[in-house]
């Protein structure tokens, strides 16, 4: 099950929001949100190879468990203190965080 808005879904709601606000006087907030959404999708597309690499690393570190199996196993304590899984998750979450919001260049 999809648990957050990725590429296509995000673009779809961004387009709907723009359409609904055509001609609206106060559309600055909508425009900023659309710019944000498009930027996320742009970075998501540019990072496809890295995202695949991260998924492979998590699969390797977890012994090829499915995502739901991995969650259950972590919850059951089977990966307590596991450096390999930690590093794979750390790398993956860092990439996703940068897709959501790139580090400031200021």
């Amino acid at each position: 099950m999809l648990d957050s808005c990725h590429g296509q879904n995000l673009l779809e709601i961004a387009r709907e929001s723009l359409q609904a606000n055509i001609g609206a006087g106060n559309s600055k907030l909508i425009n900023l949100m659309v710019i944000n959404a498009v930027g996320i999708v742009e970075r998501e597309l540019a990072s496809r190879e890295q995202l695949t690499h991260c998924s492979e690393n998590i699969a390797k570190a977890s012994g090829n468990l499915s995502n739901s199996e991995l969650c259950s196993s972590i919850r059951a304590g089977q990966f307590d203190g596991d450096r390999h899984l930690y590093e794979a998750l750390h790398e993956s979450t860092m990439l996703n965080a940068r897709i959501f919001k790139p580090p400031s260049t200021k």
Binding site: D3, S4, S62, S68, L70, C71, L85, L89, T93
Partner: peptide, 9 residues
């Protein structure tokens, strides 16, 4: 119904 290993961690 979400599976987020990082949150579980």
């Amino acid at each position: 119904g979400v599976n987020r290993p990082a949150l579980e961690w």
